[in-house]
Design a protein around this nucleic acid. Structure first.
Lengths: 262, 262
DNA sequence: AATAGCATTGCGTATAATGGAACGTACACG
DNA sequence: CGTGTACGTTCCATTATACGCAATGCTATT
């Protein structure tokens, strides 16, 4: 059995013209893979997940472990290490609205009884940085640190309404809309019309466009200079939100958002 | 043995035979280094910080950037990328008490008016996972994601009081006490006496042992089975804390901590 | 007892990460 | 206005180094 040319994955050329150092990228992929697991993951599971030889995965994970980015349970399964939290928290400190984001969400959650979220525009998506559960929690709120597309969230639409049409097109092209519910807005002209509506009323509505039965209302928040720095929303069951009056709630959200600027 | 006992230290040839893949470890060091910067860091600054050739640092940072762990400002300075927050948040989800930690801290902050913190034992230190500022904020509260030693925090002492003496010794040896204030507890026997006191009253007091003028009161929190899962504390200026009565406040902290178990 | 799957170690090889040198640029200073 | 410095970046030769195979010991499963 002489050495054969590399297996090449049956499909032939794998695009390894990616920028950077292979070992580093692989280790980061392992970290991302691990972050998706709800339970501790075994070496072989992770290795399979990112398509690496167990030996390679082992050494990369050892490297991650030596710096606290992963740690091992007694049965040698892997979990995220606390260093990830430490550094993730450092990221938050760079986000201008971080220190007030939680307070803001909590106030709105209290005054409306619905779950309230604060998010920022990040790499063409909404990144949630604060969530406050309302009295009547549905348990379907996104957690901080998760992302959602712009086109199907009230936060995303509120932010896009602030931007020039060209930028909006660019953002949507970057993350092309997919039909998530019957109400999802898919085409560009519909979105532009929707954004006109947002601009005229001052808040954005996600009318069951991402999750059936869930309605969200969002508005942008600005710093003291009036520069947009993120967005604020409430989320609740469609029926209850409509009972309480979308316009009514919208005014509440806008009021909270405006109070923030001070 | 015929050979000299002096092993490997004579020439110091082994500088960093650390386990793992060098490029990965270097990139993680870069990430940690970057997380320490309050402002965007330049390539050369980071390279110097971790003692790397700029060329090498550049490629490692490119790798980190390709996966969203760092990003660049318009002037090409580096900042942490949002992926770090995403993964750091995933870590929190594995912490059993995370979902209730914020609520818990807020309730205690509201009922006492002082800043309240929740932390867990992690790698021989206290890792703060939730902070709620009280009415009368001093602005010196640690942020979530930061660490502090066990021996000089009320959280640490409350947790150590739960552990066998041998474990305590091990933990303290792992992170040997340093004099941070005149009150810092340095020697083991004093600490054991202190922990006895903690056990008898049910809460721990940091009596200006970490920061002059700051007093903290902490107690462990348990899950429904009675297993220790973290600790809860309040922090405030020494004078005010003493005015309000340490014992009084201690009872409040313990009450909140116990209410948590339900 | 036998098998299967797993984590881990050692090792030779070829890859791939490394750092020197050089280039372009921006800015500071004389 | 020219000179000098510090920086980011590209290119390239070199060899250090990360890789994957094969073999080992382990645990769980049949």
């Amino acid at each position: 059995m002489a050495f054969q040319p590399a297996e090449s994955e049956a499909t032939g050329a794998q695009r390894d013209d990616q920028p950077g150092v292979r070992a580093v990228i692989r280790s980061l992929d392992l970290l991302v893979e691990l972050s998706k697991w709800e339970r501790p993951a075994r070496l072989s599971e992770l290795a399979r997940g990112v398509d690496l030889h167990p030996t390679t995965a082992l050494r990369l994970l050892e490297s991650l472990r030596s710096r606290g980015f992963v740690s091992q349970t007694v049965d040698r399964s892997y979990v995220l290490g606390s260093r990830t939290f430490e550094i993730g928290s450092a990221f938050l400190r760079n986000v201008s609205i971080w220190s007030q984001a939680n307070q803001l969400a909590e106030q709105l959650a209290e005054s409306t009884g619905e779950t309230s979220s604060v998010g920022v525009l990040d790499e063409g998506q909404i990144l949630y940085i604060a969530i406050a559960r309302g009295q009547q929690d549905m348990g379907i709120a996104s957690a901080p640190g998760t992302r959602h597309p712009l086109y199907c969230t009230s936060l995303g639409k509120a932010i896009m309404a602030e931007l020039p049409a060209a930028d909006v097109n660019g953002l949507l092209a970057q993350d092309p809309p997919r039909r998530l519910t019957p109400n999802t807005i898919l085409d560009l002209s519909s979105m532009q019309r929707e954004l006109n509506e947002v601009r005229s009323v001052g808040y954005a509505v996600d009318n069951e466009e991402r999750t059936p039965g869930v309605v969200c209302i969002g508005a942008v928040i600005r710093d003291h200079r009036g520069v947009q720095v993120g967005a604020l929303s409430i989320s609740g069951p469609a029926v209850r939100m409509r009972e309480n009056g979308i316009a009514e709630l919208g005014r509440l959200v806008v009021k909270s958002a405006q109070a923030f600027s001070a």
